[in-house]
Design a protein around this nucleic acid. Structure first.
Lengths: 336, 336
DNA sequence: CTGTTAGCGCATTCAT
DNA sequence: ATGAATGCGCTAACAG
């Protein structure tokens, strides 16, 4: 018995707070307070209002409440693309933190494109989001100014810029690059190559790696999002540049996995003939053969922390640490 | 020079449409129409209004517009969890389709928990979402009734129930199970095992597989989300149940990858000693060694189609095909 | 093509 | 502890 398409609600129109108040025999505002600020209302009226809510099937209209109070309880969550596995734990943790506080996340995909970032931010601001969490940085100077003027709290994540738009939760990518360089050199690998994505942060890690090594290295650059297939291709390119390559640093575990697969397919042993280091500590990295040496980053912690900072600012609190470094750690495993 | 935290906008309050109208020298409603229904307004006034928008830095308040028009241009997108890689292409395509039409996606994680599903739906309805897209089915009978009464369009996806809440875009999981059974039997594999997730859809595929085979099979059930590690564990369990196992059907490519890794680690050749079939055609499946035989499903098409159906209903159109079967195909590769 | 009027449903401000 | 009035910013419905 399919319901009538596009029809208005089957019977009468939806109940409003007005109806609840009438049924409960109290004024509009008392009903409102009973539901949102129970401490200001007597227990008996709370009960009567709640009974009226049940009776009427009342569902509050947050649009109206938001308009009046100028607080939408909506947070914008911006990612380059949902397919970037890297950011999923962050988004997941963020959504959970917000949900627990009665906030919802509006999702936006920026597509590594500044003009789209502009349009998206405008759409979010039009909805009067109470805060913005962006994975990566806000690239558009115009947008930075705009959110600054409007006083919208912003948390940039997964990076650690010197001049954040507002707040930031992340870590130093150049430090990661240096750490990986030091690790590989410490293991005695001389001929090192790099398989890297083309995004901003991967390039920072590249710079750190080169600085740590003190020289250029063979490099294969692949487009986002990183994948096993791209890793295989990258190793092919790197071996053309240096057939005697002994180690490959990768900008993502997906790439590292591909490099390993390609190496094994070419009859190279990992790590005896070729060492491989990834980045991100993906869920599979501890369980491949060989297990993947990688850089561990707590993406969920980034999301949680970002959510808490945004919520604190939404409550009007001052956040003492506007720049939070969650750090990273090299996870030593078999592949390097 | 950090901006003042929690401060109100740096200077005066934000411009409203009222200000725009005043600056442009037209009435409020004309300014509104110039921005949202330009066809009803003369070109010269459009220009003047747009100039006024620039001059005032006006950003529309969709909260107010939505309240008045009862159309929020907000769509709820519900997934069990963001970590279920399966659904990402669907969400990504859905977000793109909605964005192009000026709609935004509000993300919700249901956590395989009916009570949370209830609470989440309520939060979404409170915000007067214009539609709901859920990956999987709406489990709560109360919620189904509620959205039905409110006349909110709903698209359930990735399944093909006989009685959808409203609309559905998916495919038959029992048919997938039968197809996989037929494929493996056709290849001559006798002793077949199953590594499967514990979610509803995976169980439907299991039923199809068993029906196709006409008998029970050794089964290892793992919790969501599927991963390489769980696949390795599952193969261990299956080999305990039947050391002479010749083939394993998996409910996800992540599991299949783990089964392959574990098989190789135990000195089994794939597919000579053990054939493996996955599900979902993940991005890596065509590039592993050996490449993974799997079931191809067009997740992006599901998201696109779902978005189009929701948007059509938001425009008041009648959707002729309320039940859309996007089908599936077995991708024959090396592992089986 | 343009304008006037009248709210959408709720929360803030003041009163009692 | 409760209530009356007011308006958040915008758009639908009618005029002209």
């Amino acid at each position: 018995m399919p319901r009538q398409q596009g029809a208005s609600p089957s019977s009468t129109k939806a109940a409003t707070l007005h109806d609840v108040a009438r049924v409960a025999g109290v004024s509009l505002i008392t009903a409102s307070r009973a539901l949102t600020k129970p401490s200001l209302v007597s227990d008996t009226t709370i009960e009567r209002v709640q009974a009226a809510v049940q009776a009427t099937g009342y569902i509050p209209n947050l649009l109206a409440g938001s308009l009046k109070s100028s607080r939408s309880r909506l947070i914008a969550g911006l990612v380059p693309a949902l397919s970037v596995a890297q950011f999923l734990p962050t988004l997941q943790a963020l959504t959970d933190v917000l949900d627990a506080a009665g906030y919802q996340l509006m999702l936006g995909q920026m597509r590594y494109d500044n003009s789209r970032q502009d349009a998206l931010l405008n759409a979010m601001i039009s909805r009067r989001v109470d805060g913005i969490v962006v994975t990566g940085l806000i690239g558009s100077e115009a947008v930075r100014r705009q959110v600054g003027q409007l006083g919208i709290p912003v948390v940039e994540t997964w990076d650690l810029p010197e001049n954040p738009t507002d707040m930031v939760v992340g870590f130093s990518h150049t430090a990661v690059g240096r750490a990986v360089a030091a690790y590989l050199v410490g293991k005695g690998y001389g001929r090192i190559g790099l398989a890297t994505g083309d995004d901003h942060r991967a390039q920072l890690r590249r710079q750190g790696l080169l600085a740590g090594l003190g020289r250029e290295v063979p490099t294969a650059t692949v487009p986002a999002p990183s994948s096993l297939a791209l890793g295989r291709r990258a190793l092919g390119e790197l071996l053309q540049q240096d057939p005697a390559l002994r180690a490959v640093a990768c900008s993502a575990d997906q790439l590292a996995q591909g490099v390993v697969v390609e190496a094994l397919a070419r009859g190279l042993r990992v790590p005896e003939d070729l060492a491989v280091c990834g980045f991100g500590n993906a869920d599979f990295s501890a369980h491949t053969v060989p297990t993947l040496t990688t850089v561990r980053v707590d993406g969920a912690a980034i999301g949680r922390r970002a959510g808490e900072m945004i919520l604190a600012r939404c409550r009007g609190e001052t956040v003492p640490d506007r720049i939070v470094d969650v750090g990273f750690a090299i996870a030593q495993r078999e592949s390097a």
